[in-house]
Nucleic acid binder design. Sequence first.
DNA 1: ACCTGAACACCGTTCAAGT
DNA 2: ACCTGAACACCGTTCAAGT
Lengths: 206, 206
Amino acid sequence: MVKGANNPRDEASGRSLRADAKRNRDKLLAAADGMFSERGADASLDDIARRAKVGIGTLYRHFPTREALLAAACDERLLALAKKSRMRQASMAPGDALRAFLEDVVRHASMYRGLATSFGIVLQNGSPGCHATTEVGLELLEHAQRAGQIRRDVEFEDVVCIATAISLAASQSPARRTRRMVAMFIDGLRGAGVDDRARLSQEIEK
Amino acid sequence: MVKGANNPRDEASGRSLRADAKRNRDKLLAAADGMFSERGADASLDDIARRAKVGIGTLYRHFPTREALLAAACDERLLALAKKSRMRQASMAPGDALRAFLEDVVRHASMYRGLATSFGIVLQNGSPGCHATTEVGLELLEHAQRAGQIRRDVEFEDVVCIATAISLAASQSPARRTRRMVAMFIDGLRGAGVDDRARLSQEIEK
DNA sequence: ACCTGAACACCGTTCAAGT
DNA sequence: ACCTGAACACCGTTCAAGT
């Protein structure tokens, strides 16, 4: 339980919330998670407010954009993902830990049906879970690179792109394809043989 | 000019169209292409009908879904893509021709802003352009595989997934990343060294 | 056979009024 | 300081009436 993540603060301002406001925020979060789970990431905001028994204006006050609401609703699960990934860092080979992380992120990017489309924006939201996930991911990547298991020229942004990309593609095609795509991508990140390497860097740079 | 592709037939039924219906269809197509180009793939269908000076019902009669309209609007450009790719088949090494094809498809999947999201569905639409593109792509893949430049276990569906995935990711991030991602993916498809290959097939199957 | 557009059921967002 | 919900401006889709 990371208690600090649940304190009564408004995302944008960081100010403390009045008791009733905090209550409303929690009700909105619960309602949003339920609604997003049942009907996907493009569920009606009106319905969410109604389920939370709160005026629609209150929803907008707490979460000015749909992405802000999505990020807040995802937050706990992203924190859990970060924690799990950090533990793997100790027990697995660096390259394998990165692949496991990539698979997890792909899964989470489709936590709600249709979430993948905006997952990139959601991750930039700066909520605790987003921050933690980004941090572990970066560590895992650097670790794998120092171990020589992943190309040096891969940036963390590439990994995020790849994850959302696979997730987006996977949501439109049978599940078995996901695993294939992760494996293929990791293979690409791993780097080609000695002969290929020089030609490849030429291909990549300009 | 492939004249056969422009004949006055309704996509679904295949029956010939009355002269005024054919005229309306063409006006809708022109209006749709303009509107999609200006405002993206989620442009208002009402606006398109209005620009075509046609009742909204007429739009629905000709194109029952938004994807059908998108596919029809894309069709000429997809035919051109297929033709260009077929020409490269003669003049380039099989692996390079496939990469060029992949880059083209990625570009076309974002022909209109926001198109990538539904590009998979659009490609399954069966219009002449979609059909031609699928056909060349399949040939290019098999050709590259026979030449030993691409793994045998890659299916054409994978290539489509990859293309839309990259396109989707690219639309949310700087342009220079696209090229990197294509290169990395192709690297993945190419296959790892001899030692890696056995482990990788294990990873992929189940 | 085809076209038209009013009618319907939705949706997101704002903001004046209330506590 | 925060909440409420009516009001506004949209959107996709259908279908009875018209040619």
